[in-house]
Each structure stands twice: as C-alpha cells, then as structure tokens.
Design a protein around this nucleic acid. Structure first.
Lengths: 205, 205, 205, 205
DNA sequence: TATGAATGAGGATTCATTCAT
DNA sequence: TATGAATGAATCCTCATTCAT
C-alpha cells in the first residue's frame, strides 16, 4: 500500500496538512537541504515514522508543496479575473492578484524560486511557469488583436511581467512583511502596463 | 596559516581558478547541496586535500563564486556605460549589458538565484543586489530630475528592471543557450524603458 | 492473553492459515528479512493489527512455518512407508516420498534452508533434521543388522541421503517447477541406494 | 571515482582484506541481515566511513565474499586433480578436496547456503554452482565414455555429489570444528562413488 | 476483530573535513 | 603541495510493534 493512494481519515488529513505547513515554513527559513526530516517532525511534535506515513520521501513533500503552491496561485489569479471582460483590465487585475498571492505566500514563493535552481525540481517549476505564462498571454493576445497593445510576443511579455512581480515581491514586499504592500503593487502594475504598452522599438525610429 | 592570506604561485592560481570553474558548473547543474566536495575534486582530477588547500570550506567556495560573479556583473555594466552621458541611454545600455553578461554566465546566475533563497547566503546576495539597484538608480534619479522620466522611486524601478532582465534571462535565454539572445534583449529593453516611462498612476486619474 | 492459547473461530482459523500461506510465499520469494510485516498484511489485504492478533511476532510466524513444514514432511514420509516392512523398500519409498514432498513445497524448503543459516532459527532446524535422520536411520540400521547393507554409521548415511535429495530438489526440480520431477527422483533413489550399498572402504582394501 | 576502480595502497589492501574477514565471520555467526555495517566496523575498530571507502555497499561486500569463496573452492579443487589422469581418481580427489575446503571455510559455506535462498544473491550462486557442476561433470563424462561408470546424466550426478558433500560438511563437520573431519570425508567419498557406480535402474529390471 | 495512525530505535549511506605520509 | 585514508556526525528512511478507536 503506497503512500499515494492511502485513504486518510479526517484526523489523518489534518496531520498531513500540518506537516506541509510546518515543512513549508522550515524549508523556506533554513533551506530545503539544510532542513532535515527530523527537524520537521520535531517541530510538529510527532515521531519520525509519521512523516513517512504521509509522504513517501522528503523530496515528494517538497514536490507537493510546489504543486499546491502553483495551483493556488493560478486559482487565485483566475478567480480575480473571472468576472472581467476587458483584456487590459484583466491584465491589471492578474498582476495585482498575483502579487497579493505572493505577498501572502512568501514562504512558498521562496521554495519555488529555490526549486527553479535545482535540476531535480526545475522541470515541474518550468511547467508551472509555462502554464502561468499561457494564462497571462491570453488576455495579452486578445488586447493585441484588438489593437490596444502594440504587436509583440505575448509569451515574452507575460514572462517579463512575472519577472517584475516576482522580484519586487521577493525583494521589497517580503523584506518587510508587516508593511503595506499596496504601493509596491501599484507601482508594479504601472510598470508592467507601461512595459506592455511600450511602442515597439521599430515604431520609435 | 589561514587559507585567506595564502600567497599563491602562478600554478596555484591556475588550480584555484580551475576548481572555481568546475565547481560553478557542477553546483549549477546538480545544485550546491547535492554536489559534494568529492564530486568537485573528482571532476578536477585531484585529491581531496587540494580542495582544502585552496578553500577553507565548501561554503567559502560558493561565497567566493557569488562574490566574483556579482563583481563581474557590476564591472561589465559599469564599463558599458562609462562613455555615455545621457541617463536614458545609460539605462538602456545598462539593461543590455546586464543581460549580455547573464547570457554569458548562466551558471553563476543560477547560483545567485539559489543563494538568494538560502538564509546562509542570502545576505550577501541582498547586499549585491542593493548595490546593483543603487548603480541603476543613479541614472534614473538623474533622468527624473531632468524631467525625462516621471516621478517615481528609482530604487523600485531599478529592481523592476532587474526582475525583468533576470527572469527573461533565466527562462528564455538560458533555456536555449545556442539561440541568439538579441531579440529577447531588445524586447526586455523596450519593456523596461516603457515601464520606466509609464506615467504615474496619479497622472491617469 | 497471549497469542498462543487463543481459541480461534473457524473464520479466524482461516485468516491465520491465509497469513501463513501468503507469508510463506513472500518470505521465500524475497527473503525473510527483506519482507516486512507490512508487505504480508498488504498482500493479504488486511490491517496491521490482524497480524499481531494471530501471531506474537514476525519471528514467531516464521518459526511456525518451519515447524509446520518439518512436521508435514515427516508425516508424509511416515505415511509413505507405513505399509511396508522390507527395510530396503522403506528406504526407497522414504527417499521418493521425501522428494515428492519437497517438490510440492519448494517455498517451505527455501525457508528451511534459509533458517539453517541463521543462528536464531538454526537450532529448531537442526532438531528437525536430527529427527528426520533418526527416522531414516531406523530402517537403515535394520538393513545393516540383516546384513543387506554393509556396516556403516546409519546417521551419516541418512544425512547423505538428505543432502542428495534436498540439493537435487533445490537445484534441479525447483528450477523448473512445471517439469516432471520423476526422472530426477528416480536418479536420486538410484544414487542413494548405490551410496548406501557401497562396500565400506575397508572391504576394498 | 567509484569504489570499484580505486587503486589501493598496500595498507589499503590490508584494510580491505580485514573487513572482508571480519564481515565473513560476523555474517556467518549472526546472519547477513542481522549484522549491521556498524557491527562490522566496530569489530574492525574503525570509523563507519571506512567501510564505504572500500565497498560501495553492504550488499556488494557480501557479493564479493561469495565470489571469492566460489573462486577459492574451484581453484582448490582444480589444483587437487591437476596431476591426476584417471577420471575415477579425479572424482575421488575432487570430492575429498572439496570437502577439505569446506571444512576449512565453514563461514563462507554458511554464507553461500544463505545466499542461495535470497533472490538478490541466488543468481550468482546458481552460476557458481553450474560451473562447479560442469567441472565435476567432466571427469564423470569421461568415465562414462570409458565404460567405467554406467550411463547417466553427469550433471545430475555432479549435483548429487555436491549435495552429499555440502550437507555432510554443514551438519557433521561444521557441528564440531575441532573434530577430525577425515572419517566423514571418507564416508562421503565412499557414498558418492557408490552412488555414481550404481547400476542404472533400467539395468536392474 | 479490525483499522489507521503512531512510535522511535535502528539501519544503510553520505559527506565535510582532517590527517599521516 | 598533494594524496589516499580515515573520521563520525548527520541524513534519509524502514520497520517491528503498539495503540486508540
């Protein structure tokens, strides 16, 4: 009976969640590798075996955290633009909601950024990023088709936006979690929309 | 006699450099933690003692790689704008040269991004980033003062630029090192300049 | 209440038997130590508690399998010679029936051979072997007394027979369970009878 | 640098041998699985890492012991019949020398018998046994061709001989290592030669 | 009877670092 | 300078067994 298909009771489900939360915090604080399984179970206050009752390996736990994180971020962003039609407003809302999510989940974001640098986890991250870029590229493509945004590669623009939002989150917002992130988010939106609307270089010549 | 102040012969200097290069590659490929000192010395083809002759610890080696990397990037960027006066052109040249450097040093960039996620190395990275942001903020501040760029926090704009360039490097340029990075760099420049020039939100109201 | 004296219902008896059979198979296939109690209960499709309801420990389960196996083999052999008086024919029938039993219980035989090599279980195996040797030695002693077999140590001859039959079972018959074991058994009988009837060394001088 | 191709110094070679010897003893005494690597290195009086300097794994160490053992037994047997031409005398000498080797290496023999019962090691053992059977079958085939031994499958006869010698070694000789094994060996030779010379069943009819 | 959950000692293995030569 | 060898703490993981329900 593998760990995967195990049917958990309510109590079990709670334990599992607890481990995920504690591990997310510790991994983000001390790093994935420097944090041992023993650290995690000690922090949870259970025996070592419990970990392996719920997860097949430390690696699988991180993979799950990453998967959940990327899924959560995507859902949050989708919900934020669900009731909007205008593609430019969708873009703005997407940027804003993405940053809000990151501000609220800075630990998961740290792990995602870590995972992107380690070949064992990078493929999963890249896939999630590709999905996110596709999500963001859709309104962009529409806006371009409508002539409201200059012709450009929507995937590239989407990735540029991700770069801005992720980096500002990581360096400015996460640096002081108690501060109000709104000004940074506003600035990020402005910057991104400006970047997207930038007339293509050729047009300037 | 500590490792730090050791006076190396020419041959020693070469060995040291060789270790740094091999380690940079291995750390970037497999991850810092998953790569053992044994892996490094085996790849270099020397005994373990050699490693500890040149570096006091594995951690110190990574720290050195990071330091060198950040220094190199800064120098490259400075050189690129040395003979330019116009702040807007400085910004553009800075963006461009920064991305060129990243394209040519993707292994070091991977390590920098990793190091930013691990508390042991993060302070050094943050310091380097702050310096980079200050460097970039200087022409920005000048441009703002000259009225050529709308009023905004130069540090924030600089960081947004770093986010764009770093992310596009990591996801688009590094993904296919054999492809010509110029189009991506051009688009990044356009995006960033557009973002910088974006009229402040207040102006839109 | 110890596990030993537990009074089992018919269903309980069946469960117990099922565990023994599954465990015998798994132990023989993967080895006793590499097979975990979890493997056994998973294969049976029950929870872990069930195991410890029927057996006090994994070790006790193996001991029981071994005891049952040795008892079964002995009974089978005894039944086979019950209605024969001639000691030489008894010997032949004993060899034949012993090999038949081994062919039909190769998993148990694997466990017996394993147990003989591990000090925790070896004493039990040795005792069983001594009994088997005594069983076989009895007709031998009679045949020697009757002058139909040259003077020799009956216990040693009995053990030689066990060696032949067990090894041929393990290497030739178990190697291809679908093949007809009769030719091998015939040859074993011939070899053993020949060995038993061999004139003592002294006679050759 | 894998453990395999490591070039050892004289001191290293000695260490390696020491580990093999201590492990052989402990594995045979307590069983392979119940003996931990820690037990081995403690008995040798070295740190835990030493083990993995010389062997890639506990399993590899056992495999090596088995390989060496089978090679040693074969060499011993070959040497014993090197200067003999007569196939019947070769058979006798082979049986005798095989048992002498087993008497002198009862620990290795215990491990071989254990390994034959565990699927991870069994293939190697079976291969070794096939070789041994082929070795023994050669003089047998010759004797049959010369009409000095009745027609029979030489491989089967060879395996019967192995069964006799191995079992008598394990149960009678190893039981009391201080006793003189000669009488048992003599009896084994007599039994085996008798078995080999036994007229085929068909001839009796 | 039965199960899911928990325990925690123990096991194999790794690895940064040191040391004798 | 350089190497092979050694160290031993630390790591991930397993597993026999127990327990609450």
């Amino acid at each position: 009976m593998g760990t995967e298909e195990r049917q958990l009771t309510a109590r079990g489900e709670e334990r599992r969640r607890q481990i995920i939360e504690v591990a997310t915090r510790l991994f983000a604080e001390r790093g994935y590798h420097p944090t041992s399984v023993a650290d995690v179970v000690d922090a949870v206050g259970v025996g070592k075996g419990v970990f392996y009752w719920y997860f097949p390996s430390k690696e699988a736990l991180l993979a799950e955290i990453l998967r959940e994180g990327q899924k959560g971020r995507r859902r949050h962003q989708r919900d934020a633009i669900a009731d909007v039609d205008d593609p430019v407003e969708q873009m703005e809302r997407g940027i804003r909601s993405g940053m809000e999510w990151m501000a609220a989940h800075r630990e998961v974001m740290t792990l995602i950024r870590f995972a992107a640098t380690e070949e064992r986890f990078a493929p999963g991250i890249r896939k999630g990023e590709a999905v996110a870029a596709r999500d963001a590229a859709e309104p962009l493509a529409r806006a371009i088709a409508e002539g409201r945004v200059p012709e450009a590669d929507p995937d590239l623009l989407a990735r540029a936006v991700v770069g801005v939002t992720q980096h500002l989150s990581a360096t400015l917002i996460h640096a002081d979690p108690s501060a109000d992130p709104t000004p940074v988010i506003d600035a990020a939106v402005r910057f991104c929309i400006g970047g997207i609307l930038a007339a293509p270089a050729t047009a300037t010549d």
